[in-house]
Amino acid sequence: MQGAVQWSLACVDAGSEFCPCYLGMTGECLVCSLLRGEDFCSCSWSGSCSYLNQRWSRGRIKERRKEEVEVEKEELTPGLISFRLRLEQELVRELNNPGSFLFLRPVGVPEAAALPVSVVDTEGREVWLVVVLAGPKTRLLSETDGKLVVHGPYYNGVLGLATLKSARAGTAVIVAGGVGQSTAVLVARQLIRGGNRVKACLAPGSAGRIYVAEKLRGLGVEVTEVKSMRTEGLPFLAQWLKEKPLVVFSGGPDSLHRAVMELVRKEDGDTELGCSQNSVICCGDGLCGSCVDFLADGRRVPKCKAQYRIAKGGSHGWLK
């Protein structure tokens, strides 16, 4: 096809109980032109009207939960820590979606120390998260016993949610390495709900260990474990792409996303893309500016809330 497609932006919170949000109140809504101060209504439609939500809310904004929770901590390897929390059923249900994450911090430290951590999986009332030691926030968490302050739910840990949710009865591929593995299980659950056959290639990467293989196998995913994604994993992916999967999900650093995108482009099929969202998230509500990024077409977006199509030739691009 000739000509470039101009896609609209979506917001992960649009239509949820967390819409309207502070961005709507401040004229920065990602989806609603009226809330941005334009004269006319023209949105990408999330199933409900953000403008109406804002009007009915009469200025009230629903805050996410913040509570102190007992955690069960386990050092998987030096530098790789697993946290298991028991939360209310309702919150766990909200977290059982691809891309969901929570902010964690020790009790008594400033809010700025809260670390966004992807939910690896949920079971009953239990939520499982994994942290790789990297800086002051992760160190503070690693040194804490007992209770943590948990803040959530947040949803924008992966990009391409619409693609993942619309993939039906085909083949889907997950490649994940390092702490990016943490996004793989909930993505796989979603793809399996869509009746897809799911294959996964996993590498230890910066985490030093593969920690979701067992979980994925338990779900019926065909798992291939490799030592290095770059030298062993990507050739597997290139091979799997010949089968024209509906979707490829990349969970890992941006360099992995780029490599995956390159391979998918080469294959020139209809395969869609999803990926873990790696920007530096600090507040999760689009306010602090730490995750602001520019799309290929110049639009400025807080990546903690913006969902956009990861186009292979369209205007959004994947990374700047």
Binding site: Q2, G3, V5, Q6, W7, S8, W45
Partner: peptide, 15 residues
């Protein structure tokens, strides 16, 4: 079948 995007080449809509 709701239209959500268009493809354009210069001033011509292609799809």
């Amino acid at each position: 079948n709701r239209v959500v995007a268009v493809a354009k080449e210069d001033e011509r809509v292609t799809a």
